[in-house]
């Protein structure tokens, strides 16, 4: 394991080009180890996603994963983006309040977000505006509760008798 993984500095040119591409959108730029981190409000999500994908200097055509982290007071949606032409990576983090778990669906930008959003809805209860088909994906019909949340406790003794 080379030490490049540990404290790689984001290439200055990449940092500058990202700043130029997303200018005008209020957000916080930072870095977490070797990935450029963007924290922003959820209303700018679709806009920033489109800009980062279409611009050729950032070229974020590959949505790697969409994760939801439950921080109990609110939830955080984390989008990991990357490109096939260079090895710089971007992480978009959005905080969503617990009483209104609603985000814009990024399917118009990356079609591969489809099932990731359905899974987030199944496990955490986050809804996505504009998603064409929000049926349960990995849990069975009639499952109660949201198992991904911290408030869902795993039972000591499972009671399922095959109805």
């Amino acid at each position: 394991m080379s030490s490049e993984d540990f404290d790689k500095h984001i290439a200055v040119e990449f940092f500058d080009s990202v700043k130029r591409v997303i200018q005008g959108i209020p957000c916080d730029l930072g870095n977490s180890r070797d990935e450029l981190e963007i924290k922003l409000d959820r209303k700018y999500l679709l806009k920033i996603a489109g800009l980062l994908k279409d611009d050729s200097s950032t070229d974020m055509k590959y949505l790697r994963s969409l994760s939801i982290v439950d921080w109990i007071e609110d939830m955080e949606a984390v989008y990991h983006l990357s490109s096939v032409n260079h090895s710089n990576r971007i992480v978009i983090k959005i905080r969503v309040p617990m009483d209104e778990l609603l985000l814009d669906s990024v399917i118009p930008v990356w079609r591969g977000a489809d099932w990731h959003e359905r899974e987030a809805n199944d496990l955490f209860g986050v809804r996505f505006r504009g998603h064409p088909n929000m049926a349960p994906l990995i849990l069975y019909d009639g499952f109660e509760g949201f198992p991904g949340r911290k408030s869902y406790e795993l039972a000591e003794q499972d009671t399922f008798y095959g109805d």
């Binding site: 849990l139 198992p147 008798y161 095959g162």
Partner: peptide, 13 residues
């Protein structure tokens, strides 16, 4: 064995 979506053994069914 403590998962929320696994049947604990097929002999339950």
């Amino acid at each position: 064995v403590r998962s929320y979506s696994v049947v604990m053994g097929v002999d339950q069914i």
